[in-house]
């Protein structure tokens, strides 16, 4: 494999994304004429070009590509929460789900330029909020039922339901990235497509054989 000296994998990837996002923001007006008039010449950064006439209505309206990135980042956050919830309910799934969760944490970091690298993994502790638990586990917070054999089998089937829910979420995410990338091109489109590929792979690996 080609190696990039001095640049870690993650850093290189973030550069790819930040570059793509930077291109996005450079292409749209950053300052409305009204804002320029009121603020005068006090804070305009040197790199800012001449003010662009505001023909698109609201001055800071995000572009479609920026919205696509925001949607993708929000989806990664939701997936991280879903995995935390699943592991909270079924600690025995922790080993199996940890690498999948790590992928989503890497996605979120890549989609959040400027965020501290540790932010996505800092929330890794399974501090699950009970209100967000999957709607499939009645009694998981109550006292354990008596009757050990039925208990074990219902726990196993509940685990299958949780996994099926995650598979469904991953499939939805992979499909949503296909929609998102339509508004993008270049390296940003490539990254969104790759994230979707990872999510499709998660669905395949977590689905029953």
């Amino acid at each position: 494999m080609a190696d990039l000296p001095l640049v870690s994998r993650r850093t290189a990837l973030r550069l790819l994304i930040v570059g793509a996002l930077g291109l996005l923001t450079a292409c749209r007006p950053t300052r409305s004429p009204a804002a320029t008039a009121t603020s005068g010449s006090t804070t305009a950064p040197a790199a800012t070009g001449p003010p662009t006439p505001s023909v698109h209505g609201s001055p800071a309206a995000p572009t479609k590509a920026e919205l696509a990135v925001k949607r993708a980042a929000a989806a990664e956050q939701a997936l991280l929460l879903a995995y935390d919830t699943a592991v909270g309910q079924h600690p025995e799934l922790a080993d199996r789900l940890a690498p999948v969760r790590a992928d989503h944490a890497a996605h979120l970091v890549a989609l959040t330029p400027g965020a501290p690298t540790a932010s996505a993994s800092a929330s890794a502790s399974p501090s699950v909020s009970p209100g967000l638990a999957e709607p499939t586990s009645p009694g998981s917070s109550g006292p354990p039922p008596v009757g050990s054999s039925t208990n074990a089998s219902s726990a196993a089937s509940d685990q299958l339901v949780v996994l099926a829910g995650l598979v469904s979420l991953e499939r939805q995410a992979a499909a949503a990235r296909l929609d998102d990338l339509a508004a993008t091109s270049g390296s940003l489109a490539m990254v969104l497509a790759s994230i979707g590929g990872c999510e499709a792979a998660h669905a395949a690996l977590l689905a029953p054989a």
């Binding site: 190696d3 290189a12 790819l16 690498p99 999948v100 992928d103 990254v191 790759s194 998660h202």
Partner: peptide
């Protein structure tokens, strides 16, 4: 990416981008 993950029995975070991000 799905076939790659099946052969590896694990996923990679950015399928299709591994070569160009130096891994």
């Amino acid at each position: 990416a799905v076939r790659e993950a099946r052969w590896r029995t694990t996923s990679v975070p950015f399928p299709g981008l591994l070569g160009r991000i130096g891994s």
